[in-house]
């Protein structure tokens, strides 16, 4: 970008318009400052709690299961459960990031309003914020995967694919929930979301045991939730048991959640902010 453009933007008269990259970059630049400020809290919340799961489920429960049954279908329980915990912890972070902070910017601090008073548009704000959340998911998931690897949670190098799969799973939650938040007047709805949706998902999406252990009538419920698809894909790539059509189906469902969620989200956010 030439200095002339910047000079003109600080002067009178019509100003050179901003490129998409600049508009989105300005929002992510802000989010970066916000994340840096909350770095310490982030490390604790996004890192320690999945670590507890790893220790309790993978190692505690795992040694018991392995002793009695020789693992799940011949796979040590730790290696069975770790890819699922990766997807699940990304889901939690993704849900959190799309609820309270978004409500804050919409309603409490109204920082979205201050952004929209500038040349930015609703879409720029949304792309910038969701992009920043994606970045945060990448970072948190990578750190957790590294720790899980040190504990022997991964069997193959293919487990590296858990990173994009977990982030895609996260976005399949972030994007629609972002839109849901835009329709809420206060945080009451979030309680329902976390207690009545996230908690059962965590327990019944094939995370800690395969869903064929569930009563038959419950199994279809797992099929329509993003977490099961994320867990199944992550497990396939980590254990080296990739079944290409199934993997394509799972990731396709996750993509659908992102894309349909995106359309609904943009509509809800515009309706909320442009009044």
């Amino acid at each position: 970008m030439s200095t002339d453009v910047f000079t003109a933007r600080g002067g009178h008269g019509p100003r050179p318009p901003l490129a998409t990259r600049e508009r989105v970059g300005a929002v992510t630049g802000y989010m970066l400052l916000v994340y840096r400020r909350t770095l310490r809290g982030t490390i604790i919340s996004t890192f320690l709690s999945p670590l507890f799961f790893l220790l309790a489920m993978g190692i505690g429960l795992g040694s018991l299961i392995d002793e009695r049954t020789g693992g799940v279908g011949g796979v040590p329980y730790l290696q069975f459960v770790v890819p699922a915990i990766v997807a699940m912890q990304t889901m939690w972070l993704a849900m959190f990031e799309a609820t309270y902070p978004v409500m804050d910017y919409i309603r409490w601090s109204k920082l979205y309003d201050s952004m929209l008073a500038t040349p930015l548009r609703v879409r720029d704000v949304m792309v910038g914020h969701i992009g920043s959340i994606a970045g945060r998911l990448v970072l948190a998931t990578s750190v957790f995967m590294l720790v899980a690897a040190l504990f022997g949670g991964f069997a193959t190098w293919g487990a590296l694919w858990c990173l994009p799969i977990a982030v895609l799973t996260g976005l399949a939650f972030t994007v629609p929930i972002f839109g849901f938040t835009a329709t809420q007047q206060n945080e009451d709805g979030f309680n329902i979301l976390f207690r009545l949706i996230a908690t059962p998902l965590m327990l019944f999406s094939g995370t800690f045991f395969p869903i064929d252990q569930l009563p038959v009538w419950m199994q279809p419920l797992a099929w329509v939730t993003p977490l099961w698809h994320g867990v199944e894909s992550a497990r396939m790539v980590a254990l080296g048991t990739v079944d290409p059509p199934w993997l394509a189906l799972h990731t396709g469902v996750l993509l659908m959640f992102v894309l349909v969620g995106w359309v609904l989200c943009e509509r809800a956010l515009t309706k909320r902010l442009v009044t």
């Binding site: 200095t3 910047f6 100003r15 050179p16 901003l18 508009r23 300005a26 952004m115 500038t118 930015l120």
Partner: peptide, 10 residues
């Protein structure tokens, strides 16, 4: 700073 960036300033 943050706000200035929304206007495309360097």
């Amino acid at each position: 700073w943050v706000y200035g960036r929304y206007f495309g300033l360097s």
